[in-house]
């Protein structure tokens, strides 16, 4: 492939980790990698995306509170219509990434491949890997027909590596004309106070599920995470129940984590949970049901009651100081 574009999302601290992962993956399959970014200060990421292989950043600019889906997709579609089309567009499987991919797909009349966790080359063409049924099977797929293909990739599918490139050239592009489709506006942002390592970056993740029995018992999970210098996570069941905020959710619709150690407490191990944590280096599970599917992926499984095992574990770790 000649050219791949990577949708570069930025957070306060610069390009998001998945952006750097996608730039790295793109380098393996194309001679030219370029980024598309938006936001008030895109110039500030030119150095970092350049270090990971992008030679150019198409800057859609400040969206003045508009949700990015419509304007960013319109800007990309306009570039493609002007003849400046890449062979493929890599998009992070994030909230805004999925919105942009969906809009772009309809605008370009091209399908989208989603939930990608790997790439390969087959017959000179890019093929994609998708875990299904909780990651027990891998489906390999590809686009047919004319490009560019839109590839939505899950976080943590690749390890980000620097290319040693210099700063990318920043090229301003106009946000496309979006009419009514661009009318959704952010009026206020709410950021949860966070302490300790981030869930998707922590070396240890301790997650709790419905087996904890009641919201107040989540404190045991938090305490254990703190003692192990890790981050607390959760199954969707207890997020939906309102015990913990959504930002704690591990799994298909939540975060993908790959810590050194993952401790699952009172989590059954549904397929949608497994795809988010199966890549952990070591897995410890505590569940009172010997048949729980979580035990099929654990390195150490304790068939027991979280209300007995967790307090004892916390006690022992504390006494070690």
């Amino acid at each position: 492939m000649d050219r791949i574009w990577v949708l570069a999302e930025t957070a306060e601290s610069g390009p998001t980790p998945v952006t750097l992962e996608l730039l790295t993956a793109a380098r393996a399959h194309a001679s030219t990698v370029e980024a598309v970014a938006w936001g008030p200060d895109t110039a500030s990421i030119a150095g970092t995306v350049g270090e990971y292989g992008a030679t150019k950043v198409y800057d859609v600019g400040d969206l003045a509170g508009a949700l990015p889906g419509a304007p960013v997709a319109a800007a990309i579609a306009a570039l493609v219509a002007s003849g400046d089309a890449p062979d493929a567009i890599f998009v992070p499987a994030s909230y805004d990434g999925r919105d942009i991919a969906g809009r772009l797909s309809a605008k370009l009349d091209r399908p989208v491949l989603t939930n990608i966790t790997g790439f390969a080359q087959g017959d000179g063409q890019l093929t994609t890997e998708h875990p299904v049924f909780g990651g027990t099977l891998v489906v390999t797929a590809r686009f047919t027909g004319d490009g560019p293909g839109i590839f939505v990739v899950r976080a943590k599918s690749f390890t980000a590596e620097r290319s040693g490139g210099g700063p990318a050239e920043v090229v301003a592009v106009a946000p496309g004309d979006v009419g009514a489709t661009g009318a959704a506006k952010i009026v206020e942002r709410h950021v949860e106070a966070a302490s300790g390592p981030k869930l998707d970056e922590a070396a240890v993740v301790v997650s709790g599920g419905r087996g904890l029995g009641a919201p107040e018992h989540y404190a045991l999970v938090e305490e254990l995470a703190r003692l192990l210098h890790g981050a607390p996570g959760a199954s969707r069941a207890i997020v939906d129940a309102g015990w913990v905020p959504y930002s704690h959710q591990v799994g298909q619709t939540g975060k993908t984590v790959k810590p050194t150690v993952y401790v699952a407490c009172g989590i059954s191990g549904a397929t949608q949970h497994l795809v988010g944590m199966k890549g952990s280096k070591h897995i410890v599970a505590i569940n009172k049901d010997q048949e729980a599917p979580i035990f099929s992926v654990s390195d150490l499984g304790i068939v027991g009651d979280v209300h007995k095992v967790l307090p004892a574990l916390i006690e022992q770790l504390k006494s070690r100081g």
């Binding site: 957070a11 952010i186 009026v187 206020e188 942002r189 709410h190 966070a194 930002s247």
Partner: peptide, 8 residues
């Protein structure tokens, strides 16, 4: 990722 946005 880190909370929620009020969107209109």
């Amino acid at each position: 990722e880190s909370g929620y946005d009020d969107v209109e």
